[in-house]
Amino acid sequence: MSEILQIEGVFAGYGGGDILRGMDLRLEQGTITCIVGPNGAGKSTVMRVVSGVLHPRRGEVRFMGQRIDQMTPKQILQSGIVQVPQNRSLFPAMTVEENVRLGGYTLQDRALVEQRLAEVGEQFPIVRERAKDKAGSLSGGQQKLVEFARGLMLDPKLVLLDEPSMGLEPRILDQVFGTMIEMCKAGRTILLVEQNARQGLESSDRGVVMESGRVLLDGPAKAVLSDERIGDLYLGGHVH
């Protein structure tokens, strides 16, 4: 398997000092990697650096061999990285279909948009079933699925999922994470940041524990999940 994303020695922050301090991370193509860690560890900052919202002060980010750390968010989007943000990002007053179409807004080719819309509708039945309903009328979990669907309109190689479980009721989480696993099986690479560390790690191939802006522990998700120190520190005590 080849590496699709490399983050090397990245230092980045928001003016008041660095949040990331020597961050290193490599993602294998077609895998799910879950970043966990306490608040302020820099999990979301990693996402911001990869999606181009934040430029690193030092270090390099490479995507499929190409430097992307100084690119604009739009260029990064077009190169094949899509982020599904933490908070609700749909347009509530627009229909589900319009929302999904907006995911492919940067595509000029209309036929391609229609084709992708059909594909995404195949993969996410809700996109077809509720096509003409206002996105704001869907439940939180349904909205999250539509956000996934919207993200796939650009047929990304790498999908960044920032806390997909946030604000969702527990019984819908299985569906959300199940969908994530299906996206991965379809050949996409997924980088996941999750507060709900247990469920995040259970659905992932690899687990990365961050603390104070760098990687503390990196290994197969199952191993991370069963690591005692981690269990005590970040997973709220006993894991098993």
Partner: peptide, 22 residues
Amino acid sequence: SRFGLGLLAIRDDEDKAAGVGV
């Protein structure tokens, strides 16, 4: 049209609209 889709997105949330490339 695609143009109109962009306009509706602006009405709903201008920042999000910019976020999806409008």
